[in-house]
Amino acid sequence: MTVLPKDIPGDSLKVTVGTANGKPGDTVTVPVTFADVAKMKNVGTCNFYLGYDASLLEVVSVDAGPIVKNAAVNFSSSASNGTISFLFLDNTITDELITADGVFANIKFKLKSVTAKTTTPVTFKDGGAFGDGTMSKIASVTKTNGSVTIDP
């Protein structure tokens, strides 16, 4: 049996954390987006972790974005102690894959008090994996961190 590389060099799934701005007490939304989904033969499963400074940001909610089908079954998240974990699994293993680019999740943060303008990162942590529509590992994932700026 011969195994051929399935990824064209330079191609990767792009996962990007967005940015937001606000004043202390505001609730802002930071999107997590996927790009080049079709090039990577869709997404059938993924789990990953984001870190944030809990002294500056309070997670209000984490909701599935419009590219997630049947989110009540296929999407899960949790947030505590400065870490947000995400889990997606197409429970049907074929019919509810992520097949389009767009917003995977929206994180709502309540901004805490600061004395001066502060930009705090929302960054990928170690761990996690992504699988394509056949549940094979997506070897190349380009992750881009985001941030939230609090301006009193």
Results as ranks from 00 to 15, higher is better:
residue 3 V to P: 11
residue 6 K to A: 10
residue 11 D to Q: 11
residue 13 L to P: 07
residue 13 L to V: 14
residue 18 G to R: 10
residue 21 N to Y: 11
residue 24 P to W: 14
residue 24 P to L: 12
residue 25 G to D: 11
residue 27 T to A: 11
residue 28 V to S: 10
residue 28 V to I: 13
residue 29 T to N: 14
residue 29 T to G: 14
residue 29 T to E: 12
residue 32 V to I: 13
residue 35 A to H: 13
residue 36 D to I: 07
residue 36 D to V: 13
residue 37 V to L: 05
residue 37 V to W: 03
residue 39 K to R: 10
residue 40 M to N: 15
residue 40 M to D: 08
residue 42 N to S: 12
residue 42 N to M: 09
residue 42 N to K: 11
residue 43 V to R: 00
residue 44 G to Q: 01
residue 45 T to H: 00
residue 47 N to R: 00
residue 47 N to I: 02
residue 47 N to S: 02
residue 47 N to Q: 01
residue 48 F to N: 05
residue 49 Y to N: 01
residue 50 L to M: 09
residue 52 Y to H: 12
residue 53 D to T: 11
residue 54 A to E: 14
residue 55 S to P: 08
residue 56 L to T: 08
residue 60 V to R: 10
residue 60 V to S: 11
residue 62 V to F: 06
residue 62 V to C: 08
residue 63 D to E: 09
residue 64 A to H: 09
residue 65 G to M: 12
residue 65 G to V: 04
residue 68 V to L: 12
residue 68 V to E: 12
residue 69 K to G: 08
residue 70 N to P: 00
residue 71 A to I: 11
residue 73 V to R: 03
residue 75 F to N: 01
residue 79 A to W: 15
residue 80 S to M: 15
residue 80 S to K: 15
residue 86 F to I: 07
residue 87 L to R: 00
residue 87 L to Q: 01
residue 88 F to C: 06
residue 88 F to R: 02
residue 88 F to D: 01
residue 89 L to T: 00
residue 89 L to E: 00
residue 90 D to K: 02
residue 91 N to F: 15
residue 93 I to M: 03
residue 94 T to E: 01
residue 97 L to G: 04
residue 97 L to P: 15
residue 97 L to N: 03
residue 98 I to Q: 02
residue 98 I to G: 01
residue 100 A to M: 03
residue 101 D to L: 03
residue 104 F to L: 03
residue 106 N to W: 01
residue 106 N to R: 05
residue 110 K to N: 04
residue 112 K to N: 03
residue 113 S to N: 05
residue 114 V to Y: 04
residue 115 T to I: 14
residue 116 A to R: 09
residue 116 A to C: 06
residue 116 A to K: 08
residue 119 T to I: 11
residue 122 V to Y: 02
residue 123 T to A: 08
residue 126 D to A: 15
residue 128 G to H: 03
residue 132 D to S: 07
residue 133 G to I: 01
residue 133 G to F: 06
residue 133 G to H: 04
residue 134 T to N: 04
residue 134 T to C: 14
residue 135 M to R: 01
residue 137 K to T: 02
residue 139 A to I: 04
residue 141 V to G: 04
residue 142 T to D: 02
residue 143 K to W: 04
residue 147 S to P: 04
residue 147 S to W: 09
residue 150 I to M: 13
